[in-house]
Design a protein around this nucleic acid. Structure first.
Length: 554
RNA sequence: GCCCUCGUAGCUCAGGUGGAUAGAGCACCGGCCUCCGAAGCCGGUUGCACAGGUUCGAGUCCUGUCGAGGGCACCA
């Protein structure tokens, strides 16, 4: 409908130019949007205002010119009016809306999908937590945002891959190895000294136990270096597996896990470093090799090769991101915790230095989750050993609530998660509000079936029974869905889908209390069933789009 | 000190890429089930941190001030 209207406006503008009442170098495409205030029609255009300057005419006069030349021979429009400083407000006819309802139903679960992505390959990298411990609630937020974003992009016609980057090389893993080794020695009844910077969490003991179960006491007498290596690789594998299971139970899966260690071992990192050396953006200082990231807007230059010859983590990062380009992705999205925001510039700088288009690289920063219990902050951190694991939270409140909750804010806003409140609200919360709308509609159909109502094939004739304000308003809201999804994809803001579905559910609940669907009037019943079927379809699709279930019974 | 993200109702948060009279939920008070599930609906009070600027028009863009959180390693 929007496209049809846009065409009508373009025609009117061209006609106006031909008539000589309007002089424009080129006819612009009208921008149409749904007005906040429903009394301002179904769609509003500000085109007259934006043309005021180039056409050297008063906005309202331009609006007049357009309206006079608008083709009204079709039954698309019911009303057109000029309002305020020069808005043109369009109202569609009820017939047009009923026709739209049928289109929505026949599109089925494809309604909401689009092809704006044009099949472009996009990679979403998210979670990417070090396999040095279980996931905590902050990772959960990143996981949910990344997953929902991937789903929204896929629905918008992108070819999406989900990737997890495993930082399994470097110091953190070394500390894990030493920590596990120390616990292992304790279990074997040997003297051990727990490393100062080690991981104190109890899970490390579990890992040590598992190692001992597999290998017995053999590492207790092995050279320490070898034993720590074994502990590290065993622990890393085990913890990564545990992360994978936790995420899978949360409904999140990845297409690909890329190992930093593998990138180092197969020469990807050194190759990227060599490549960078050719660019003149590296220089030597005090025995180390530096990247001149300040040349690309960074605060300070960054080390790539330490003076002892080791490659830094940054070197791996450069190589890893370079590999994303060579793997043929058109767009690269990283979902990072906000505490890593300092790295955005330097990675972008490195890509640019390598001659890659850093505009195709985008970082979505997910802000910190402030965990509280009855308003009191809960301290977290692997270092202190006290933190709330993601799986505890998911077990406590369920995956649907956890997901929904994380998506009720935009990613770059800080979020407070109150465990006690979440637990208490389990019976009464926004997810159930939406899911309840879905089950209510399922209930309507159960009722209809019980009463022996025969469901009719969708047709204009059946839809003809619909026409009151609430019915048309509901269709109008349904119609907004594809644009919401498109907008969410374009802005990388999956939370928009969540807000939309809450609005739709609310509108349905209101409709439900005001109007009965299964009535004595067969025509009205058929029409209303058609309408609520569409509502159920869209709520279901929207919920699944953010990974939340849409049950028929609760 | 420099950088990043943010500042909207008592609290938690939206505000669709600059539009018309800024919205939800929670909380508080009062109503609504002989009728498709009351996990619902209806009614009631308050707000864009502050000061400039850009233009027909700013919660939205720019600058500054104040405030919150985070980041500023040859750590990962």
């Amino acid at each position: 409908m929007k496209d049809a209207l846009r065409d009508l406006i373009s025609q009117a503008l061209e006609k106006a130019c031909a008539d000589g009442v309007l002089s424009l170098e080129r006819v612009p495409v009208a921008h149409l949007e749904v007005p906040r205030d429903p009394t301002h029609g179904d769609l509003a255009s500000n085109i007259a205002m934006s043309l005021a300057k180039p056409a050297k005419m008063a906005p309202r006069a331009i609006a007049e010119v357009i309206c006079e030349r608008l083709d009204r021979s079709t039954d698309l429009l019911r009303d057109v009016e000029i309002a305020g400083p020069g808005f043109i407000n369009f109202s569609f006819s009820d017939d047009a809306w009923r026709g739209r309802l049928l289109e929505i139903i026949s599109a089925g679960d494809d309604f909401g999908s689009s092809r704006v992505g044009e099949g472009r390959r996009v990679q979403v990298e998210f979670v990417s937590a070090n396999p040095t411990g279980p996931l905590h609630i902050g990772h959960g937020r990143g996981a949910v945002v990344g997953d929902a974003l991937a789903r929204v992009l896929a629905a918008s016609g992108y070819d999406v891959d989900r990737e997890y980057y495993v930082n399994d090389a470097g110091r953190q893993m070394e500390m894990l190895g030493q920590s596990v080794y120390a616990r292992y020695l304790e279990l074997c009844g040997r003297a051990s000294e727990f490393p100062d910077e080690g991981y104190p969490g109890d899970y490390v003991i579990d890992v040590a136990k598992a190692l001992r179960e597999r290998d017995g006491d053999k590492w207790a007498d092995a050279p320490e270096g070898e034993a720590v290596d074994a502990a590290r690789s065993f622990g890393g594998d085990l913890l990564l597996e545990r992360i994978r299971v936790d995420l899978a139970e949360f409904g999140i899966e990845f297409d690909c896990f890329t190992s930093e260690k593998a990138l180092r071992e197969d020469g990807t990192v050194s190759a990227a470093t060599e490549e960078l050396k050719k660019t003149q953006h590296l220089y030597e200082h005090e025995g180390a090799l530096w990247f001149r990231s300040t040349g690309f807007g960074d605060d300070k230059d960054r080390t790539v090769v330490k003076s002892n010859g080791d490659l830094t983590y940054f070197a791996s990062d450069i190589a890893y991101h370079r590999s994303k380009f060579t793997r043929g992705y058109d767009e690269i999205i990283d979902v990072w915790g906000a505490d890593h925001h300092g790295y955005v510039k330097r990675v972008g700088a490195a890509l640019e230095a390598l001659g890659l288009d850093s505009k195709r690289f985008r970082v979505l920063l997910v802000q910190i989750v402030n965990l509280t219990r009855d308003g009191e902050p809960v301290r977290m951190g692997k270092r202190t050993g006290e933190f709330v694991e993601l799986r505890q939270v998911v077990d406590e409140v369920g995956p649907d609530l956890a997901r929904f909750f994380f998506l009720m804010r935009k990613a770059d806003a800080q979020l407070e998660f109150d465990l006690e409140l979440a637990r208490r609200q389990t019976a009464e919360n926004p997810v159930f509000y939406v899911q309840y709308a879905h089950t209510r509609i399922a209930g309507i159909f159960r009722q209809a079936e019980a009463k022996g109502v025969v469901l009719l094939e969708p047709s204009l004739g059946v839809a003809a029974a619909l026409g009151n304000e609430d019915e048309i308003a509901l269709i109008r809201t349904l119609n907004e869905f594809p644009e919401v999804v498109e907008g969410a994809a374009a802005a990388y803001e999956p939370h928009r889908v969540v807000f939309y579905v809450q609005r739709l559910a609310g509108e349905f609940h209101r409709f439900y209390t005001r109007h009965k669907c299964v009535t004595d009037d067969a025509d009205l019943t058929a029409g209303r069933l058609l309408l609520v079927q569409a509502v159920k379809q869209v709520i279901g699709r929207a919920l699944r789009l953010v990974g939340v279930s849409a049950p028929d019974r609760m």
